[in-house]
Write a protein that binds this DNA or RNA. Sequence first.
DNA 1: GTGTGCATGTAAGGAGTTACATGATTGC
DNA 2: GCAATCATGTAACTCCTTACATGCACAC
Lengths: 188, 188
Amino acid sequence: MELKPISCMVLGMLRLGATSGYAIKKAADASTSRIWPVSLAQVYPELARLERHGLVVRHEDPHGARARARYELTEEGEGALVAWLRSPSETEIQIRAEGMLRIFFIDALPRREQVVLADRAQELIRDLRAHMYDKDLRGPLDDFDEHGIRGPLLLGRLNEAMLERGQEWCAQLEALLKAELEAEGSEG
Amino acid sequence: MELKPISCMVLGMLRLGATSGYAIKKAADASTSRIWPVSLAQVYPELARLERHGLVVRHEDPHGARARARYELTEEGEGALVAWLRSPSETEIQIRAEGMLRIFFIDALPRREQVVLADRAQELIRDLRAHMYDKDLRGPLDDFDEHGIRGPLLLGRLNEAMLERGQEWCAQLEALLKAELEAEGSEG
DNA sequence: GTGTGCATGTAAGGAGTTACATGATTGC
DNA sequence: GCAATCATGTAACTCCTTACATGCACAC
């Protein structure tokens, strides 16, 4: 069977301890959502597909009167996950950042408003930084460290490093634009 | 009319000197494609839509026997572009990075292969860095500097700063994993 | 003379999101 | 009691990409 990114997300999250579709979605929201967002409407059909192909097994696991399904990785499932990690990544890094796109077209604005754009860009990065691997939302993935799991932490640090630099850069741009604005003001 | 991101891309690129749909696509590929990719199948219908709403005017501009359309921003078009830049950005930064996602699940691999993942991540970032505002492909936007246009340069520098840090970080991770691998090897 | 690039569009398909539909449990 | 959360799914829709269709111009 063909493994799509959503398949790998599901397999990976199951391996890290999420058991239900709902839990997978929650764990993803709290960790990888800014790198690879997933929706429940993807998770449930994907779990069914993975089960049909024998990569996961489903156990009915009701909680009181509320129905619940618990999923487990099979050996084939674990193998498929590892095979994916070994395979060369065919897709490049893609970014969709309308706020950053505005920087590209910043010259259409007068200096005074350019400063605002720089500030907004910084805010966007700060926001992204804050939600990358949200400590308050980790939930079922809380005890990574205790199990020798460090992937999530590593990805978090990588993002942190890059975004910190980006934020610094935006702050510098804002300062520069402000300085230019004042220079213009004292001239005119 | 509602301005979608593709609308703003088209308006912005027209303002920066691209005149035909094809030229807009080329300019976007050479500059903003990694931040906001566009396809010709978006550009042509969007140009028609913008014309219907009076934000651009179309002039037939054949080149020999080959039909060609030249588009110009109207005052309303320029105004719409500026209004977009002034408006708060509703969409957050979104990233799709399968290669980075693998870092998250890196623990499923033995140490030896974790090193490969770190190397691949670095390569992905290097690749992204190389194609962010490709100097050889700029084409119609070549003479930005001479016209007091610096947006493209600023965005390029922001990306450069962030990605440089990311690449450094990946190199460090790779070195760390290699060191751990050797330590394990000498133990066993 | 032929391949690459310029140039403009349309149609079909896929991936992913939002909305819909339903109901139990738990904490305040 | 009531809101938020847990929990599972389906249906409709949207955005975007790939493929299709067509043909001139220019450089080698």
